[in-house]
Structures are given as structure tokens and as C-alpha cells.
Design a protein around this nucleic acid. Sequence first.
DNA 1: TGGTGTGAATCCTTTCACAGCC
DNA 2: GGCTGTGAAAGGATTCACACCA
Lengths: 213, 213
Amino acid sequence: MQDIPGPAIYRISFYLRQLETLQRASHETVSSKELGKALGYSDAQVRKDLTYFGQFGHPGVGYRVEELIQRLKKILGTDRVWPVVLIGAGNLGRALMSYKGFLRKGFQLAAVFDADPAKVGRRFGELEILPMEKLQACVHELQVRMAIIAVTPEAAQSVVDLLAAAGVRGVLNFSPTNLKTPPDVYVQSVDLALQLEQLSFRMSMGAGPPLAP
Amino acid sequence: MQDIPGPAIYRISFYLRQLETLQRASHETVSSKELGKALGYSDAQVRKDLTYFGQFGHPGVGYRVEELIQRLKKILGTDRVWPVVLIGAGNLGRALMSYKGFLRKGFQLAAVFDADPAKVGRRFGELEILPMEKLQACVHELQVRMAIIAVTPEAAQSVVDLLAAAGVRGVLNFSPTNLKTPPDVYVQSVDLALQLEQLSFRMSMGAGPPLAP
DNA sequence: TGGTGTGAATCCTTTCACAGCC
DNA sequence: GGCTGTGAAAGGATTCACACCA
């Protein structure tokens, strides 16, 4: 597979999300023009993006919704269920524990950990909060490759080090800090307050049209 | 102000975050090289980004941390406190209600709304959950320009329409759906499950280095 | 020496435009 | 007619390299 623009990979997720909406509305096929319009991209952009990964379209017809969904899931690696561990059972962590959207996309919270002894042992639905000492064994046992971090920024680096050592290869980080990892561990960060800051900037500028994402 | 690359605006937020970390560690000045290294950017990138907004550096010295923080805050519009309303008091919404990071960046939750009568009236700390009927009046009264949406994807579009009509100009959307707004309303979306999906993709590809954000 | 600011050059991404297919 | 896939062209963003400054 040659090299694919970073933004295109991001858009693939949006195509999939929109296709699932179309599927619920019983659309059998969709053209690059329709798909693009729904998401604010050009038709050429849609076609180019999709052909980075293969030839999924049918000339004169468009793309078959069901077929394209299956293909994109395979590309994104969500054609199966991934076990995920969550570190940090504070306000945000607990909200993530009961967030339905993860399972819908094929991610299952397998275990939750927290360093605070006061929290360890408490149950939320299926899940009991475990002490950090059990992290390594759990990751090995359940073959966990992905983790979500929702701890304080001060603790985040040491947690990600632990995770990397235990064999985790991908981390979704909600702590507002930059994490250093070996090159074989991929970190995706979401800083909630930073998102509001971006909003504030666009508005201070006079809220024109959205610039590049 | 001429046109600034979209990614650069995003990086400005990261520069600010890193500068605040440096400030806490009592650094007086920082060079573009140091700042870039901490965040994984080149020194040229840092200088180019900053000069889109003005000339903040001191040749031979670097950038003065305190000074640059003030300048960037002004650029991002966070040199003051913005009142923000939150719509949706489900799991995620309640976590956001008590998220400390917002206030630290100059965003204050002014009110919370939910359509569910069972939730209306319940208190969390300072905040009481209000019925949707009070939204319009509240936005006017408190001069609210920004909102956070944490409702179901089905409800999100009608909520954003309400907000736009009430005068809100910026929306941070946590619902996994595409929102249509007039061009003077800016929407910043965060799809939590989509973030995991991106992680899954990178890992399926063999978890190379992070591509463009 | 150590550092910024910046035009020029390079690199990457998106759009255009059209051949080919249903 | 409608639509995809794709090489070529255009448009943006990043890096280079150097003038200039403390």
C-alpha cells in the first residue's frame, strides 16, 4: 500500500459514518457526489480517497452502501471486536465506561484501572475498577492492544509508559499533555478544552467558513 | 489578516499548552527549536506559524514565555472568560459539567439543559439542569456565544438549530453526526468512537509514525 | 554564537477534466 | 445520461537556506 494523505484516512471514518446513516435510511447505493455533499467534500475528493484503498465503485451506478461499509470496516480494522482497557475512573473515565458508541464501532471495554485505592473495587455495571498492579497481567491475558487514558496530565506519561511496556500499541489520550512513546506505539490525543479554544479562535476571527480540518 | 493554514491554527493551541507547562517549570524563554522538539514539529514550522500572527521573537534570545502566552491567548480569544451552555446531561454531559479543564482555559459553564423531564431540576454542584424551554432566554440573558452538545445523534440537529436561532455562534459537538449550520455558526466536532477507529486503522497498518493530524 | 523572520524551493493534497464503463 | 477511476494541473503547506539581529 503506497502512502495515503493523513486527512484522507480521517475522512474514511466520516464516509463510513455517513454510509451507516444511509443504510439505516435504506439507501442501496450512493454516488460520490451525494456522499460528498452530505459531508462537505467535493465528489472528486470522495472518489480519490476511496481509490487510495481499492476500486469499490460501479460506473453508472455509484457505490453500493452495504458493500462499501464492509470494505471500509475492513480497512479501518473494525470488522471485529477489539478489547480496550481504560485507565482513570474519574468523571471523564466513568462517562467513557458507559459510552455506548464504542461498542457500536467494535470496541469493548475489557477492564478499568485506577491508582486511587478509594476507587478500586467499585463496580459500574459489568465492570469493576481494578488496581494498577493488575494492568500488566490483564493486558497480556486478554491480548489487549488498545487503551484509553483519562488520568491527570501529571500521571499520563507514566501510565503510557506502563501500557507500552505491557504491549499496548495504540492509545487514545484524553489528558491535556504531550506523550512521548516509542515509534511502534501510536497515540491519538483529544484535548477537550483545546477544542473549545479552537472554537473561540474561529469566533474571534468573525466565524467565517470552516478552514481546513 | 491574510489566510493562515488550518493546521497552523490548531498548532497554536499546542504551542500555548506547552508554553504553560514551561511557565510552570519556571522557564523564562524558549527557542523555536526547543518548542518544536517538545511537540514533534520542526523549528522552521514553529517560527512560520508564529509569524502568521505577528513578530513575537527576540533574535539571539528566543521567545519570552510569559509574553508569548499572553499574545497567543489574545489571538485565540481566551484572554477572557466565555460563558458556555451545555445541552445534554447524560453520562458524557455530566462528566463535562465537572471537567476542570474548561475553566482553566477560560470557559465557564453557565447553564445546562436537557429535554428529559426526569433530569430537569437535578443539581450537580453549582448547576441545576434546566428544561429546553429556558434555553433561548438564558442564551440572550447571559450573552452566551458558545455551546457544547452532548445529546443523541438523532436530537443533535434540532438542538443546533435552536442554538443558532438563539444567537450561539460556536458549537462543540460530541454527537456522532454531521451538523448543518448557517455559515456564521462554526461547529467543531469530536466523535469519541471515531478516534478509536483511527487508532485501529493505524494499528492495522502496522502502527508507523503518526501522520498529519 | 545563537537565535528570529522570510522568500524560494520542495513536498503534499486537492481539484480538474476526461477516458472508459454501465 | 450518469457515474467511476485517474493522470495532469493547480493550490497549499512545510522545509530550506540565508539575511539580519542581539
